[in-house]
Amino acid sequence: MSESVRGVVVSHAAVAEALVRAVAVIAGQSDALVAVSNEGCDTAALVARIGAAVGSEPAVLFIDLPGGSCLTSALRLAHDRPDLAVVTGVNLAMLLEFVFHRDLPPIEAARRAAEAGGRAIEARGT
């Protein structure tokens, strides 16, 4: 088995922190994910904050919105790091999928998580 990939959840306000806490409660995994908030950051500071959370190991970056400062900062960091993959529209379902498949290469773990997250979204009602 290859080394486990870390997940870094990047969001506005405290969304990331809440998602990471919820994953720990549901899955019992507390070391697979790290939360990063964009609060108080300009672009350079947010890139540095995400970089500190990622470190030098392979990782998947989970971003809240498919645009905006969290995504652009993550993509700046991932630009010359092929060991990083980025997924947008983070939700709890995709993180729960990810934490149990961290032995995959980052891009495969990212695709698998994105598919699970997409499947979790549906509208019900009459």
């Binding site: 506005h12 300009d42 672009t43 919105l65 645009g67 905006g68 400062s69 652009t72």
Partner: peptide, 11 residues
């Protein structure tokens, strides 16, 4: 805004 285009601006 030193973040230029971001959620607060667009939304």
């Amino acid at each position: 805004d030193d973040r230029l285009i971001h959620g607060q601006v667009v939304v």
